[in-house]
Design a binder for these strands. Structure first.
Length: 777
DNA sequence: GGCTTAGATATTTTT
DNA sequence: TATCTAAGCC
């Protein structure tokens, strides 16, 4: 314990606003925290203040975050401030907290304590099976889409019956039927999906007053992080917990709400204020992170969103360097130039690779950067990618564990019933399943019934299984295998159990057969074993459930790096999606792919609401940067094997010119070169007079000219912009709509008089300035 | 029962 | 381009 007064110590380095947020401990509090305003710091100090100054026991404080990473970080910072006893502090993710509640009190809502948490894969499998049963064509009703309707329903707290009552289309009706069957399947499997964790917790608190009281008594203070990304259910759970004490503190930034597609509902911020009347509002708008220029630019972009909770970020940091906006030819060059710039940052500005991130809208964009990094020998860290627990072999062995822990877990059973192959065909499995469904018992019960008789039990079978002797034999063998596993699970630590399963199930033998990837897969299983060792030593069945819960809820396993894992110490560039970048910061940030269709994403452009979310996404990206920000755009991009060219992102036009340095393909300052800048050329017809005097290929296409394109047929030029190789031509094709084409790539013919025309070679990289006379009749 | 192949399909994904 | 699924074949 420090000799200085704890409070003095705690509040010392805080701004007035931050201090206000930390010390307002009675009643509801809303902290609107801009990027880089020190919100984690405030939350940690608040907890420390509650414990140290207000004498609240740590176990009576519940802090909920969205990610495990955020939870870990907050916990660590609290522990540093609070010291002893802080390990009883409840810092959890929403789902982690709910899971905890349901493990101890879930019986009330129909859950046994060993319930399984189904992941997206399991859900899809359940849905597909139901479609099969109902004889619904999965092409017409993709399982994903149905699951999304189900998820919507759950998030609106609607039961299958309620959903079916408000169906409007045939699709809704199908969804309602599938929903009902889906719920039945999960119920039978003693399983929940992620939405259920929240929904069932809500139902528990809402429907059982003694439960509500218990948890309200337990948690005197509640903190909720990233409040702008909470969904309706999460808000309801938080609301119920805090209804009595009213000691609830939520922290969020509506401008960083980027998960509405996952039911996040930013109106929770206003709902919060009406639910908890007289909530104090503290706005943290001083950034300790970014330069003035970066903040100004980000501010002017986000300023284009309507109905915002106005908030002007400011900083005492230096003005900083202008934002570099660069345009490249294609994604390859984009990658090359980004790496070049990163190298320069390292050499000239002393910004190491660890402090540099490349951020993009969609995962597929990482590819060009990976290729370039590999070619140049630049180490990189790819965030995301195939997760360790998503690997096939890991999932397979986990399914054995799940089945052992929860014998009703049907998704697990079906995954491994015939892996490795043990003579249980799809037909056999269907027979077993049908029987199980009709008797409303877990499939494993039927299997074990067959096994029992097969092993010589005199008593006749309970279920009438209509299968050939050979199949029955296979079923019995499998049942026997699982029985042994369950027996072993009572005395073995989970890591030992994994060994036992791998060997006895034949999985190990199967991997040893596989010359190509077997070794690698076996190594992954060794890693799985290693991760289970952390849980060893406690009561066996409990440790198995804990381990499985951890696997289900804690997807980002650090220490379990798997493939592509890079030593955290290594000086490597970070490749990351904009979504994943939330909450992180780097000295230098490269935002790439700033084109219409990419950012904003093409699926968002015709919905103003979604468009605003795209803008927030860019805002999040921009505000990750401490010192330097680069924004890249490619003229042409290969996407799904096809290349096409897009206009520059509209968002680029929202950044004031005086905050920006523009560079062209060759890295030249465009303005200095006196070149017209296609990126800033608005998409309107240019008058001949506005074009540069120099004759170039671009001038060959004037508005009104007739042209022919290999794929699109004949059309009329609407406008052209840029010059030389950079020329873009907009053409209205009959029946094909208006297309924007890169002259140097588009196989575009000009129709002069009758048939005389010039064809540009689409494979030519650079187009030479053509003599216009060539086109004379 | 498992392998090969054609055909379709394609944001973001904290849990 | 890559990835997945269903169907087709041995």
């Amino acid at each position: 314990m420090s000799s200085i007064s704890p409070t003095e110590n705690l509040l010392a380095g805080l701004s007035d606003r931050q201090r206000e947020a930390v010390t307002h401990t009675d009643g509801p509090l809303l902290i609107v925290a801009g990027p880089g305003s020190g919100k984690t710091r405030v939350m940690a100090h608040r907890v420390a203040y509650l414990v140290g100054e207000k004498g609240i026991p740590p176990w009576k404080i519940l802090a909920v975050t969205f990610t495990n990473k955020a939870a870990r970080e907050l916990r660590e910072r609290c522990e540093n401030l609070v010291g002893g006893g802080s390990n009883e502090l409840q810092v959890r993710t929403f789902h982690g907290f709910c899971s905890r509640v349901l493990r101890s009190d879930g019986e009330q809502v129909g859950l046994k304590p060993e319930f399984t948490i189904y992941d997206a894969d399991d859900q899809a499998k359940v849905a597909r099976r139901i479609l099969d049963q109902f004889d619904i064509d999965p092409k017409q009703f993709p399982p994903r889409a149905l699951l999304s309707v189900i998820s919507d329903a759950k998030n609106n707290m609607r039961s299958p019956a309620q959903l079916s009552r408000r169906t409007e289309t045939y699709r809704d009706e199908v969804a309602a039927r599938v929903y009902e069957a889906y719920e039945g399947a999960l119920q039978r499997a003693n399983a929940v999906d992620f939405d259920d964790l929240l929904l069932k917790t809500y139902q528990l608190l809402e429907g059982y007053p003694e439960m509500l009281e218990k948890y309200q008594e337990r948690f005197e203070h509640l903190l909720v992080d990233e409040f702008q990304d909470t969904n309706a259910l999460q808000f309801q759970v938080a609301r119920l917990l805090a209804l009595k004490s009213r000691n609830i503190c939520v922290v969020g930034d509506p401008d960083q709400s980027i998960y509405s597609w996952r039911h996040a509902d930013p109106t929770n911020l206003t709902d919060f204020q009406s639910t908890f009347q007289n909530a104090k509002i503290v706005t943290l708008d001083q950034s300790y992170r970014s330069t003035q220029i970066i903040l100004e630019a980000a501010g002017s972009v986000i300023g284009n969103n309507d109905g915002r909770m106005e908030k002007n970020l400011w900083t005492e940091n230096s003005r900083g360097t202008r934002i570099t906006v660069a345009e490249t030819y294609n994604e390859e060059e984009e990658a090359r130039l980004v790496l070049e710039a990163a190298k320069e940052l390292k050499n000239k500005d002393g910004i190491g690779r660890n402090e540099v991130a490349i951020m993009y809208r969609v995962n597929a964009q990482s590819r060009a950067f990976e290729v370039a990094c590999n070619r140049e020998g630049v180490p990189y860290r790819l965030v995301g990618g195939v997760k360790f627990y998503d690997r096939k072999e890991v999932k397979d062995i986990l399914s054995f564990l799940r089945l052992i822990s929860n014998p009703a877990d049907e998704a697990a059973l079906e995954r491994i019933i015939n892996v490795p192959a043990r003579g249980l065909s799809a037909k056999t499995v269907t027979e077993l399943r049908t029987l199980a469904v009709s008797h409303n018992v877990p499939m494993l019960d039927v299997i074990l019934d067959v096994t029992r008789v097969h092993m010589g039990d005199e008593e006749p079978r309970v279920y009438h299984v209509d299968l050939a002797t050979r199949a029955l034999k296979s079923v019995a063998a499998f049942g026997d295998l699982i029985t042994r596993f369950i027996e072993q699970s009572l005395s073995l630590d989970t890591n030992e159990l994994i060994d036992f399963i791998v060997e006895r199930s034949g999985y190990g033998a199967m991997l040893r057969e596989d010359k190509e990837r077997g070794e690698e897969r076996m190594e992954n299983l060794q890693e799985l074993k290693a991760s289970a060792e952390d849980f060893a030593g406690t009561e066996e069945r409990g440790q198995l459930t804990d381990f499985l819960e951890n696997v289900a809820l804690v997807s980002d396993v650090d220490g379990l790096q798997g493939g592509g894992g890079i030593d955290p110490e290594e000086d490597a560039l970070t490749l990351i999606t904009l979504h994943q970048a939330k909450g992180l910061e780097y000295d230098a940030v490269f935002l790439v792919g700033l084109e219409e269709g990419m950012l904003p994403h093409s699926r968002s452009v015709d919905d103003p609401t979604q468009l605003e979310e795209e803008r927030r996404l860019l805002y999040v990206g921009m505000t990750r940067a401490r010192k330097r920000l680069f924004m890249f755009r490619a003229f042409q991009r290969r996407f799904r094997g096809q290349s096409g060219s897009q206009m520059a992102s509209r968002f680029l036009l929202e950044i004031p010119d005086d905050l920006v340095t523009r560079r062209d393909i060759r890295g030249h300052d465009r303005v200095a070169d006196g070149m017209p800048d296609p990126m800033w050329t608005k998409h309107v017809a240019s008058t001949p007079a506005a074009r540069p005097a120099t004759r170039s290929a671009g001038d060959l296409f004037d508005p009104g000219d007739k042209v022919r394109h290999k794929a699109f047929g004949e059309g009329v030029v609407v406008s052209s912009s840029g010059s030389g190789a950079d020329t873009q031509v907009t053409v209205a094709f009959s029946g094909q709509g208006v297309k924007r084409l890169m002259l140097s790539y588009a196989p575009l013919e000009k129709i002069v008089e009758e048939e005389s025309a010039q064809q540009f070679d689409p494979d030519e990289d650079q187009i030479e300035v053509q003599d216009p006379d060539l086109f004379a009749p």
